[in-house]
């Protein structure tokens, strides 16, 4: 499995990219995630921002990403569509490429999601810091 040092992968985003990536999306820009569990079956959930997608995919609040683990269990996203959404809608080409590389590995879906966690941790931290910085200014 590919393992990344996130700081080696992503250059610091600029404020414009951070603002675009973290914005609230429209109906047409939504991402659909399939939430699977034994009581409810498979439910399609529409998400309208990147943190919301992170919340579902990793099953926790994004600011507690590594603390909570996989509370939500199986949250399935079509990997091809997810990469396209990250690149074209969210606008983060670097993140989309890194995620695509992880998804190309011949491992289970659950391992793929685990593999992209560090990427999101790093990227969301970068975005968060930038947004705080912008707010302070």
């Amino acid at each position: 499995m590919v393992e990344y040092e996130a700081e080696e992968l992503f250059a610091q985003p600029d404020a414009e990219l951070a603002e675009r990536a973290m914005r609230e999306l429209s109906w047409a820009e939504r991402l659909t995630i399939s939430k699977m569990n034994p009581a409810t079956g498979t439910e399609n959930v529409d998400v309208y921002n990147l943190p919301h997608a992170v919340l579902h995919l990793f099953g926790t609040r994004w600011d507690r990403l590594l603390l909570d683990g996989s509370r939500a269990g199986i949250a399935y996203v079509d990997t091809t569509r997810f990469v396209a959404w990250l690149g074209d809608v969210v606008g983060d080409k670097a993140l989309a490429e890194a995620v695509a590389e992880c998804f190309a590995q011949d491992v289970s879906y659950e391992e793929k999601i685990e593999a992209i966690k560090p990427l999101f941790k790093e990227r969301m931290s970068q975005y968060g810091a930038l947004m705080i910085e912008t707010a302070v200014e």
Binding site: M36, P38, I74, Y76, V107, S108, Y109, E110, E111
Partner: peptide, 10 residues
């Protein structure tokens, strides 16, 4: 459900 869970964790 049983095969679903097992498939998702390969």
């Amino acid at each position: 459900w049983a095969p679903q869970v097992q498939a998702m964790v390969k």
